[in-house]
C-alpha cells in the first residue's frame, strides 16, 4: 500500500506490483490512485507529489497529483441533519416565504454547505446498491436518494409555516379572548357579532401588533 511521503519518494517497486491488466504508464497513475481510493475508504493519501522513476522510459518523471481528499468519518445522516438545519436557518436568515426559485437555491446551498463543513469533502454511501459503494456529493445529489432528500428539504418551508400557524392559532383564541362567550342569555349570533367586533378592533388599531412586548399568555 502506498504510504504518505513527500516529493522524491521512489515508488518503482510499487509500479512493478501493478497488475498486467493495468497500464504502467505513469501518466495514468492518478486515475489508478483515485480508483483505489474509492474502493478502500480507509486509505488516506496525504502527499501531493510523488517522483516516479519509470523503468519503461528509463527517465525520471515527476508527476504532480491532485491534492487527495482526506475522507472523514461522516455518515450520510450527519450530513442530512446538517442540511436540514441549514435549510431552516436559511428561512430565518432571509425570508420564510421564498419563491420557488429561492427554495431551489436554498436546498442546493443547504446540501452543499452541509458537505463543505467537513474537510476534504464527503463521500456518500449508496444504500440502494451496496453499503460499500460510495458516491461523491455531486453524483449523490443527482441520484434518486439525493433528489428525494432535496424534496424533504423543500418540505421544510411548509413544515415551518404549519408549526407557526398551529402555535399562533391556539394562542390567538386564548390571548385575545375570542372564544364564543357573552352575557348570560346571549344568542350564538350575538356572541359571533361580539367576536367579530373584537377582531375588527384588533386589526384596525393594530393592537395585536403593539402587543409585541406584552405578556398575554403567562
Amino acid at each position: 500500500m502506498l504510504q504518505p511521503g513527500g516529493t522524491g519518494v521512489q515508488v518503482q517497486p510499487l509500479l512493478d506490483k501493478v497488475p498486467s491488466t493495468m497500464p504502467k504508464d505513469t501518466s495514468q497513475l492518478g486515475t489508478l490512485l483515485n480508483r483505489k481510493r474509492r474502493r478502500d475508504s480507509t486509505v488516506q493519501f496525504v502527499a501531493s507529489k510523488y517522483s516516479l522513476q519509470s523503468s519503461m522510459a528509463s527517465v525520471t518523471t515527476t508527476v504532480a497529483l491532485a491534492e487527495p481528499s482526506i475522507m472523514p468519518n461522516v455518515s450520510l445522516q450527519d450530513v442530512k441533519k446538517a442540511a436540514l438545519a441549514a435549510m431552516k436557518r436559511a428561512l430565518f436568515d432571509e425570508s420564510p416565504f421564498p419563491s420557488p426559485r429561492g427554495i431551489n437555491r436554498m436546498v442546493k446551498e443547504a446540501i452543499d454547505n452541509a458537505a463543505i463543513i467537513y474537510p476534504g469533502g464527503v463521500y456518500f454511501p449508496l444504500y440502494l446498491y451496496s453499503t460499500t459503494h460510495q458516491l461523491p456529493i455531486d453524483q449523490w445529489k443527482s441520484h434518486l436518494e439525493g433528489e428525494g432528500f432535496a424534496r424533504v428539504l423543500k418540505r421544510v418551508v411548509g413544515k415551518v409555516h404549519g408549526d407557526f400557524n398551529r402555535a399562533t392559532k391556539a394562542a390567538t383564541l386564548l390571548a385575545f379572548d375570542l372564544s364564543l362567550r357573552g352575557p348570560e342569555g346571549s344568542t350564538r349570533e350575538q356572541m359571533l357579532a361580539l367576536r367579530t367586533y373584537k377582531v375588527n378592533v384588533l386589526l384596525s388599531n393594530k393592537t395585536f401588533v403593539h402587543s409585541f412586548t406584552v405578556c398575554w399568555l403567562y
Binding site: T168, T172, V199
Partner: peptide
C-alpha cells in the same frame, strides 16, 4: 413570522 400568522388567524375568525 409569528405576527404574520397571528393576523392570519385573527382574520380567519
Amino acid at each position: 413570522l409569528i405576527a404574520v400568522f397571528l393576523e392570519h388567524n385573527l382574520r380567519s375568525f
